[in-house]
Design a binder for these strands. Structure first.
Length: 629
RNA sequence: GCCGACGUAGCUCAGCUGGUAGAGCACUUCACUCGUAAUGAAGGGGUCCCCGGUUCGAGUCCGGGCGUCGGCUCCA
């Protein structure tokens, strides 16, 4: 048989030859360094036979940055971790240990809890294994055989995995440790040149909080110590951009135990907030949204009608009342208020689509342990809107929302990921209704030319949705905007509009927030820009820096001239050196510094941009240039 | 909510096996009046997260609570 190599040459091999045989046929060095076979984008274990005519690429330890090569390396390291843990902690049960982005983990059920201090000795044991040398052997076994072996070893999690695994079952063995695994794996442990155990966490078996919580050990591995060092260095740099750090450094906001999950916005942070609010208001207005304001508190009956009382009560804040008063709760979402507003008058089909926009404050009592800087808060302000429309208007309205969202994210140079979630198992409405609403969303996405992921079964019980996701500086994904189609809530509130047929009809409603919560959006925005906001968002846009005390008067006069058209400008007349004040302006990430001394006049200003680029401009030129930003 | 860690000056952090708290930056004052990333000196500043316990004595040890961080689950 023949296989095709990356340069399109053909390699003649005996029938049944494996990837390793192919590597050996090419050269002994390649055979030694090979880590896996890649074929049409799929990874394949070196130990598996090749097919006649198969196109193959043999990855080696030299492909040290290749994601597939790293994946295999880390997968094998996870097995070594399990071997080490089992040796050090008799009675431990092993669960599952896959490679993940940037590393791997393995889940264990320890007889006694362990703490981070244990990681050190586990890591030492793991390194010892590598130094000692390990080779992996692959074998295929029957389901019965696999089950028998894990039962004999008293590994209940593995037994469960065998029972639910589909396809053939394979085992990988290194040293005296055998694990159920699909592979592929390294030939031996020699290529693992750098390992670090990075963390310890609880994780529910099979990701279900009703199951037992296991102990997860995270780690990472590389083909080269320098790559591990570089990775840790990158992590350190990412922390520099963390919005929590920058929020303090740039004096934008702070969080306090006096009100967990509710940011205190400082004057400079508020500038960004207000600019976003202005953007929201202006763009909503351009798209015929109608701004409204609805109450923060509602009686329980309202939440019973909306369904929040039954489905969301544990996330809501209830207000203590005098005994003779109605019980009230803070709104966790704007929809009930907008339903009541729509229902307060008789509506005609001629008014549809009717788009109510509001960005008032929402409160959600998030589970402790889930709060996270600005990215997960209890005090939420969405750029929210509810669009009431007739069935034949849904697709166009969804399209317009998608278009609007793309406009906003483009404005910031952000790339959001779009994700469509379809009907869940527990749902209201018929399959025909879901067919109709899901296809409206898909059509709108396709028409707008948006690539999207599909999460089958992840929709809300009342309708399908499209979510927008962004990634924070540490690689974690956060939901930003959401566009949800709902046929249930209008009916629950008995909303109706008079149709052309003089009959009452129930409108559909689209719940949509595009930036999502302003708190979260600003958090992501801070990290996106690393604190270096574009001119229009910068809390302080220009700083005038008088060289000596004699120049203070002129500096203030200049600042007044620039403040007039609305620019945010400050004068730094502290008794410090120019160097010192330049440095502070740089740390504050102010876009423009104007140094003003004996050499300057309105006809000739010394402008310094962030990072040091200098130029000379007249005041008129400067004003003209700023107007284009 | 769950697992693990952490909580010391405005910020970043040090404080060994228990003996009554420290640095850098920031702040104030003084001198210097300065040309594109830190001028020098002096000074002020702390219920060591909270409550309880052990102890002659707790920032340090133990228990509980609150908050934060890394994950899990859940969510914008």
């Amino acid at each position: 048989m023949k296989v095709v190599l990356p340069d399109n040459s053909e390699l003649e091999l005996p029938d049944g030859a494996t990837g390793r045989d192919a590597a050996a046929a090419i050269g002994p060095k390649l055979a030694e360094q090979a880590v896996l076979v890649r074929s049409d984008g799929h990874v394949q274990d070196l130990r598996l036979p090749l097919q006649d005519g198969q196109k193959i690429q043999i990855l080696t330890t030299r492909d040290k940055d290749d994601p597939d090569a790293l994946y295999v390396l880390r997968h094998s390291t996870a097995h070594l971790l399990a071997e080490a843990v089992r040796r050090l902690y008799p009675g431990v049960k092993i669960a599952i240990g896959p490679p993940i982005e940037n590393g791997f983990y393995y889940d264990f059920d320890f007889p006694e809890p362990i703490s981070e201090a244990d990681l050190e000795r586990i890591e030492a044991e793991l390194l010892r294994e590598i130094a000692e040398g390990r080779e992996w052997n692959r074998e295929e076994v029957s389901r019965e055989e696999a089950r028998r072996r894990f039962e004999a070893e008293d590994e209940p999690y593995k037994v469960e995995l065998v029972d639910t695994a589909d396809g053939d079952i394979s085992f990988y063995t290194q040293g005296d440790f055998t694990d159920l695994c699909r592979g592929p794996h390294l030939q031996n442990a020699a290529p693992i040149k750098a390992v670090k155990l990075t963390g310890l966490a609880g994780a529910y078996w099979r990701g279900d909080e009703h199951n037992k919580q296991l102990t997860r050990i995270y780690g990472t591995a590389f083909y080269d110590q320098a790559d591990l060092d570089a990775y840790l260095e990158r992590l350190e740099q990412a922390r520099e951009r963390d919005h929590r750090r920058l929020g303090t450094q740039l004096d934008l906001f702070h969080l306090s135990e006096h009100s967990p999950g509710s940011p205190f916005w400082h004057p400079k942070g508020m500038v960004i907030w207000n600019e976003l609010e202005e953007l929201r208001r202006r763009e909503n207005q351009r798209r015929s949204y109608l701004e409204v304001k609805t109450p923060l508190l509602y009686d329980i009956d309202t939440y019973v009608t909306s369904g929040h009382y039954d489905n969301y009560a544990e996330n809501m804040f209830f207000v203590e009342q005098h005994e003779d008063e109605k019980r009230l709760a803070l709104k966790p979402m704007n929809c009930p208020g907008h339903m009541l507003l729509f229902g307060s008058q008789l509506r005609s089909y001629r008014q549809l689509p009717m788009r109510f926009a509001e960005s008032s404050t929402l409160h959600r009592d998030e589970p402790s342990g889930t709060l996270h800087g600005l990215l997960r808060v209890k005090h939420i302000t969405q750029d929210d809107a509810h669009i009431f429309c007739a069935p034949d208007q849904i697709e166009d309205e969804i399209f317009a929302c998608l278009d609007f969202a793309s406009y906003l994210y483009d404005l910031f140079g952000m790339e959001a990921r779009f994700e469509l979630s379809t009907r869940p198992e527990k749902k209201l409405g018929t399959d025909e209704e879901w067919d109709f609403t899901e296809s409206a969303l898909r059509n709108a996405l396709d028409r707008r030319g948006i690539d999207y992921l599909v999460h089958e079964g992840d929709g809300a019980f009342y309708g399908p949705k499209i979510d927008l996701h962004m990634t924070d500086v540490l690689g974690r994904s956060w939901q930003m905007g959401t566009i949800q189609l709902d046929s249930q809530m209008p009916a629950r509130f008995q909303l109706a509009y008079m149709g052309a047929d003089n009959q009452e009809h129930t409108p559909y409603v689209i719940h949509r927030a595009l930036l999502g919560s302003l708190e979260r959006f600003i958090g992501i925005l801070i990290e996106h820009y690393g604190g270096e906001f574009p001119f229009w968002l910068a809390p302080v846009q220009l700083l005038v820096l008088p060289v000596g005390a004699d120049h203070r008067g002129a500096a203030h006069a200049l600042a007044d001239r620039l403040r007039e058209p609305g620019y945010r400008i400050e004068v730094d007349e502290r008794d410090d050196t120019v160097d010192k004040r330049i440095r502070d302006a740089e740390l504050e990430k102010i876009p423009y510094v104007i140094v003003y001394g004996d050499r300057e006049s309105d006809a000739s200003l010394a402008i310094r941009e962030r990072h040091g680029a200098q130029s000379t401009k007249s005041l008129d030129e400067l004003l003209k240039d700023l107007a284009t930003l």
